[in-house]
Design a protein around this nucleic acid. Structure first.
Lengths: 205, 205
DNA sequence: TAGATTGTTAATCGATTAACAATC
DNA sequence: TAGATTGTTAATCGATTAACAATC
């Protein structure tokens, strides 16, 4: 166990472990080892043991880890042992795909509001949600106490929308716009940009 | 300059620099410095200089970097000074969103084939492409010499589709399925999983 | 020339791996 | 008990930062 600050690089691997463990559990498995988990996720056994041991002694010598127990612990550590409300900003193709995405519900998230600034889209429904006017976004997010947002607006609008999200009290943004956002240090941003991800691989071709 | 092997972590930052520089160029700028670029992307000036200097002496003391010149060099290094054909596998919501995505064309990529295994979808059109039967995927990709694929099939099918992509000669996979893929070391995989990205941020809330 | 900024070196910092005692 | 596998330490490896001579 270790109560010092945990490096972000370790935090970034935990959701990957969580996903693999959930899959094992779905397949009816009850126990695993750092070795086996490592083979699934492509990370060394030593590193997995070291990462997990930052948070407690969750394994047993000789037998490894109980999958349900480790799942619970990881969910607790990552704070996904609850359901987070998420605001979605931008009701284009990507926004629609995210609104319909089935993978959030059992992983700790639910979209509860969708915003757009286009007259034609406001009032339309996606998956039962009426698309709301961006003009009321700050107030709506603030009064609902929402801390998480997904941003799928065109790049030229992304920074100004991000500023409004910060103003509304959002603390974590999943950014689909192909632009680096500037936000205060206390706001986390994760970037999803398919072209950037592809460009990272073409180097090796 | 340095002809040794470049760490992957540096390669991963280059597309981010490229995107920021492209944006500066679009705004009519002609020169920048490691300091200024660093502020845009949230990386230290020293690191940016060090990263760039792995590939050559692209800057000038006193005046910094020519944006068009550095853009050309980065595109060349990342091999996106050309247009790559990409196969899209899975014509669900996410597949549709990617097929319609406007951001690939000017960043080195074009989707040229779309596959699905659903009878109802095969033959339908997305953005002018007829959705093809997955059964012919290996042959079609192989004979077209395609090296890049985007995978947007449901998780349970992702590994077997990935195996077929490898068999077809694909060398880089952008994986949208929420599962870690096992592929040979010579095949690159990048993972896009919104729930995983969100879970990486909730820890800090 | 004076000011600015690069490219690079050396120092620091942090992450990963190897190894093994502890123990289930 | 014998075998397996953890948690942890120390060693190694790699990445980042600070600093500055070189030079535009």
């Amino acid at each position: 166990m270790n109560s010092e600050k945990i490096p972000d690089i370790i935090i970034g691997r935990l959701p990957v472990y969580l996903r693999a463990l959930q899959r094992m559990a779905d397949n009816g498995l009850n126990n695993t080892s750092s070795q086996e988990l490592g083979e699934h996720v492509g990370i060394s056994a030593a590193q997995i043991r070291k990462d997990i041991s930052q948070f407690g002694e969750f394994g047993k010598q000789g037998t490894g880890y109980s999958i349900p127990f480790l799942l619970d612990k990881l969910k607790e550590i990552l704070k996904v042992d609850r359901k987070w409300d998420v605001a979605l900003v931008g009701a284009g193709d990507m926004g629609h795909a995210l609104a319909r995405y089935q993978g959030f519900n059992n992983r700790g998230f639910q979209i509860v509001m969708v915003f757009d600034n286009s007259k034609e889209k406001i009032g339309q429904k996606i998956e039962g949600f009426a698309i709301e006017d961006s003009a009321s976004m700050v107030e709506r997010i603030k009064s609902a106490g929402i801390k998480l947002a997904m941003l799928t607006v065109p790049a030229p609008f992304a920074q100004s929308v991000a500023d409004k999200l910060v103003q509304a009290g959002v603390k974590a943004i999943l950014n689909y716009a192909p632009i680096s956002l500037n936000v205060p240090k206390y706001v986390k941003v994760q970037h999803i940009d398919p072209a950037t991800h592809l460009q990272r691989m073409t180097y090796y071709l």
